[in-house]
Design a protein around this nucleic acid. Sequence first.
DNA 1: AGGCAAAATGAACGATAATTCATTTATTGA
DNA 2: TCAATAAATGAATTATCGTTCATTTTGCCT
Lengths: 209, 209
Amino acid sequence: MEKAKRKEKEFIARRQEILDEAEIIFAAKGFHAATMAEIAQGSGFAIGTLYQFFQGKEDLYVSMVTEKLQLMYQEIRDAVQAREGAIQKVEALVKAYFLFVENNAGFCTFFIRSDGATLPDVSNALREQMIEAYLGQIQFIEGIIEKGIAEGIFPPEKARDHSFALSGIIRGIIFDWLVGAQQGSLAGKTELVTDIFLNGVLINQKNKR
Amino acid sequence: MEKAKRKEKEFIARRQEILDEAEIIFAAKGFHAATMAEIAQGSGFAIGTLYQFFQGKEDLYVSMVTEKLQLMYQEIRDAVQAREGAIQKVEALVKAYFLFVENNAGFCTFFIRSDGATLPDVSNALREQMIEAYLGQIQFIEGIIEKGIAEGIFPPEKARDHSFALSGIIRGIIFDWLVGAQQGSLAGKTELVTDIFLNGVLINQKNKR
DNA sequence: AGGCAAAATGAACGATAATTCATTTATTGA
DNA sequence: TCAATAAATGAATTATCGTTCATTTTGCCT
């Protein structure tokens, strides 16, 4: 079984090379404008070879997006799980999001902007899958917030709305960073975001309505 | 000049019919999967006729998106301008956003989800234009917040971040509504959103860090 | 009415790029 | 070394629309 294992490893490695190139091309030009010829050229394989690894262009695209997304969600989950209290978990969530975006700006520039959902073209299956993945992430955030409710620091019955709100703030700040010069540390805005989410923007309590 | 005016009016009306059908088709299938034949069929014109009104498919798409967007931003501007204080303006902003989405769910389902920006395919010109339009909207929100700073209720130097945060919360809640059953009133969530933005989610001040 | 201009029509064209597959090249085991 | 098997190749095929434009229809004015 020594040989089969090495074969398998090589297969995975080549597949990943193709995926990496696909990410660059798709991110730069979008699904339709990107061609299989470019991706083949860029990854150093012949066009036909791509079809040994993926059923077609759509499969390649879907694989690239879903595998990258899964990576992101995994990183975030891990970071959050490593912390204890609800507030610490919120902080970890925001920071993990920001770090992933900083390290994957190319991918995120064309993807995060699309709210984890649409890409109305390409494939309905992918759209559904991405919406589902995003809603899964929302549920994960809900879990954090429900922990906060149990701790008595968050109000009950609003976990879902608050999850979308937090996710929205994070995405808003990410968008700013991606579209702007991508300069300065995005992770450095972690405290800003958690502050807005936890305390709002009013200067002091007397303004509370 | 009587005749020319009527001609002009008819031209605009026909053009709008095409745009309305284009909105439906593009929203349902995205730019590439939609065909000129479908749009012609749906709007009751021949394929060639579409080219009397638009230079081509891309022009039709860009026109549809930008004109609809402009409408949305106009509605929001008007609603905000009608109110006085910064907090009232924030409320008006959120509510106007929500009302537009409720009345244009089809358009928003495929567009708002994409964060006012990307659509990486189609045309670079459109992407730039849409990012610019979104940033214009952000600047408009910044204006509101700066008014709040002048009123002494918002902290200085964070207007831009807070604008993105508010926009993000709004989009987050909209996303929930669009992807969910689109049931219940979205406008009814206005207070929830302004509350989160102004006061955060912590139950009371003693939890402030 | 009847002729002129503007608008509408949709079949045919052309360009693009995904996919296929017959052929070539590399790898393996005896 | 040399079959035999697996993998890689890329030219040729094929399908799909966007666009064009010669023709028809409509509307307008005298």
